[in-house]
């Protein structure tokens, strides 16, 4: 019998579905990076990904001490006069800590269900 040219095998479907699964999975994974906190100052940008307490300095000058707990972050101490950044307390994804005198912004990289907050 003359062999008919293969057009489309079961294996092909399995392969295509597999590729789809891997693709979608990788997209989902890249969307959820996990909690990372950005500490941005005038001349620096520091990304905190591991829990712990960090000293934030700028050109060798101590500015503040930041405590990061994975899904919460706070300023423990700061050199600014009003200490509003310390008084802000714990902040989670979507929240921002601002220290105006030191010009430091602390925020989560993670996306929230809103774009911004009025305060």
């Amino acid at each position: 019998m003359k062999k008919v040219r293969s057009f489309f095998r079961k294996k092909d479907v399995v392969l295509i579905i597999l590729i789809f699964v891997v693709l979608i999975f990788s997209i989902l994974v890249s969307e959820k990076k996990g909690s990372k906190v950005v500490v941005q100052g005038k001349d620096f940008r520091k990304i905190l990904s591991k829990p712990g307490t960090y000293d934030i300095t700028e050109n060798g000058r101590f500015l503040m001490k930041v405590e990061f707990h994975g899904n919460r972050v706070r300023v423990v101490e700061s050199t600014c006069p009003l200490k509003l950044c310390v008084k802000t307390g714990w902040v989670g994804p979507g929240g921002t800590i601002i220290c105006v005198p030191n010009e430091v912004i602390i925020f989560f990289e993670e996306k929230t269900d809103y774009d911004t907050v009025t305060w």
């Binding site: 802000t88 307390g89 714990w90 902040v91 989670g92 979507g94 929240g95 929230t112 269900d113 809103y114 774009d115 911004t116 907050v117 009025t118 305060w119």
Partner: peptide, 23 residues
């Protein structure tokens, strides 16, 4: 947003790290 969607804005809870409303 993207030329057609509204921006979602949370209204800050004045005492907690929270949002009390969305606009």
């Amino acid at each position: 947003k993207f030329g057609k969607y509204p921006w979602v804005i949370g209204v800050k809870d004045p005492r907690e790290d929270n949002v009390i409303d969305y606009i």
